[in-house]
Design a binder for these strands. Structure first.
Lengths: 154, 154
DNA sequence: CGGCTTTCCTTAGCTAAGGTAATGAGTTAG
DNA sequence: CTAACTCATTACCTTAGCTAAGGAAAGCCG
């Protein structure tokens, strides 16, 4: 814990400020995730499936194993998720060019359209939720969002 | 994200920057929640049970219905959660003074001790995770944590 | 080349943590 | 005083993850 514990080279406790932040963060993440579950754009698409599509959108393509690692899910779970997405026509599975054990997952045009639609609905939801925040609070969230994303995949 | 830059019905404008923030936030929350699930401090306590204890810590006491609303969980689920916590001696159930349908849930001293212990362990875990963040990034997370908590209960 | 070991995806079976529908007791309104 | 509503609960079901075990391809080493 190099950076975080920088002020405590002697193994001192984490500052109380950070402890409060951890508590708040953990609690907020758990509750928000529960609400996001219900706020699914397509009733037939789970949050993790959405997240996979998002990852695919950023990376272009990936193997099931890579996706499992990125989503912090075990390979068998990713197999099922990818199978679901394929059945719904949101994703295409092709053989890996170099390694016949692996497969390559790519999103379809349909998936892209769906992502766009989803983005719209999410923003509507968020806008309503965020109406309870003042400009300053929202600025803090905006600043932290990319960092949280980084944190999630560390 | 064309929809985003258009003025909202009430005249407020959502900058395109927010679209990226929403995406990052949603994705990060889902992934973090998954990891938090596995990183439970006490093996015998689910994340939601932890969250309920946290709420109880802040509010002092509450009825099962109130807790269900705060945690965004259905009443039957909260019944089960509270029963678990009671079985583990972390919570006490008493009859409501005015309304004999309701019950009042309060945390025991044992719960308080456990929260303290849990806080310590969580900090260790977080510190390790946060070793990938620089001081500036961590400051952003710390600033946003309370806001996220507010957001989660709006 | 021929045989281990490892890696990747998959199948099968399990569990945990939530949800819905229906019940029963207590309260409030008409 | 009955009718309607609310709170907690019970019973049952669904979902989304897991582990364990497998089969096929690739890599290694004699």
């Amino acid at each position: 814990m190099p950076e975080l514990s920088r002020p405590e080279p002697d193994g001192r406790e984490v500052p109380p400020d950070d402890a409060a932040a951890v508590n708040a963060l953990r609690s907020a993440v758990m509750r928000l995730s529960r609400r996001l579950k219900h706020q699914r754009v397509d009733e037939s698409l789970s949050p993790t499936e959405m997240s996979v599509l998002g990852t695919l959108f950023r990376c272009g393509h990936a193997t099931p194993g890579e996706l499992a690692r990125k989503e912090h899910v075990q390979p068998p779970s990713m197999t099922r998720i990818v199978a679901m997405l394929e059945a719904k026509g949101l994703v295409r599975l092709e053989p890996h060019p170099d390694d016949r054990r692996q497969k390559v997952v790519t999103q379809t045009e349909q998936a892209e359209a769906m992502l766009e639609e989803s983005r719209r609905k999410r923003n509507a939801w968020l806008a309503e939720l965020a109406s309870g925040l003042d400009e300053d609070e929202w600025a803090k969230v905006r600043a932290a969002a990319p960092v949280l994303e980084k944190l999630a995949q560390l």
